[in-house]
């Protein structure tokens, strides 16, 4: 073999070595630094109320200044009311529907609890995302907040109940209408994060926290109790004629 041919082969071999070494020196796989669950979660349902919603406002999407309709429902006889003027709650409504803003923490009142006459609960609802109904039909597709007896009884016993309401993943959702009667709640263990579980099933949109705290007696503590009086918009239902048959 002549010397020029030998040098040519050497150059080619060196090119191959460089190419092979370049293909082997890859960066570390990011999955090596992930947890066993495959991800590190920034938020949990145990975080103080308002933090997740405020974080959502920094994200993309038309979430700022949007009044998301929310409909409350519960056991028979239970009334829901929102704070109005004078630090007092309004007239209880069994099917209250209001427009709430994302990022705000709203304290509302629950009265008429079955089996606990006279007792009142003051849970909070925090909107952490919105839904996108067809234009003009926002009030027809509110976020349904359905509380059952077990939630209210547990709160009256001094326990804290955290409900994360999520929008079902359309790929896995049942093609059935979601009504207060057909609403199903998933009970999880205490050591599980409700937000993580809800994130697995769909897109979390609201967090309801129910406890047994009562309003403070000092007037100066009221803004703290009501989380700064965030804005909300009442939504009035059409008046049902007397002959209308209730479903």
């Amino acid at each position: 073999m002549t010397p020029p041919q030998t040098s040519l082969l050497r150059i080619a071999a060196s090119i191959i070595m460089i190419a092979v070494s370049g293909s082997l020196s890859e960066a570390a796989d990011p999955s090596l630094y992930l947890s066993n669950t495959g991800q590190h979660r920034l938020h949990s349902s145990d975080m103080p109320p308002g933090q997740i919603g405020q974080a959502r406002l920094t994200g993309r999407g038309p979430v700022q200044s949007y009044f998301q309709p929310v409909a409350f429902s519960g056991p028979k006889g239970v009334g829901f009311s929102m704070p109005e003027s004078g630090n007092f709650f309004g007239k209880p409504d069994s099917s209250l529907q209001v427009g709430l803003m994302i990022g705000g923490v709203y304290r509302f009142c629950i009265t008429g609890i079955p089996g606990a006459e006279g007792a009142e609960l003051y849970p909070t609802i925090e909107l952490i995302d919105r839904i996108y109904p067809p234009p003009g039909l926002a009030t027809s597709f509110p976020i349904m907040i359905n509380l059952d007896k077990e939630d209210l009884a547990a709160a009256l016993d001094g326990r804290m109940v955290t409900r994360v309401i999520y929008l079902e993943d359309p790929q896995t959702a049942f093609a059935l209408p979601e009504t207060p009667k057909t609403s199903r709640a998933i009970d999880i263990a205490e050591y599980q994060d409700a937000l993580e579980v809800a994130d697995r099933f769909g897109r979390p949109v609201a967090i309801v926290r129910i406890g047994s705290v009562s309003p403070p007696s000092a007037e100066a503590l009221m803004p703290q109790f009501f989380f700064g009086y965030p804005l909300w918009a009442p939504i009035y239902q059409p008046e049902q004629p007397e002959y209308a048959v209730q479903p």
Binding site: F67, M82, P83, E84, S85, G86, N87, G99, T139, M222, P223, F226, Y229, P230, L231, W232, A233, P234, I235, Y236
Partner: peptide, 8 residues
């Protein structure tokens, strides 16, 4: 729909 709020 009317905007409401809050305390006095």
């Amino acid at each position: 729909i009317q905007l409401a709020s809050c305390g006095p």
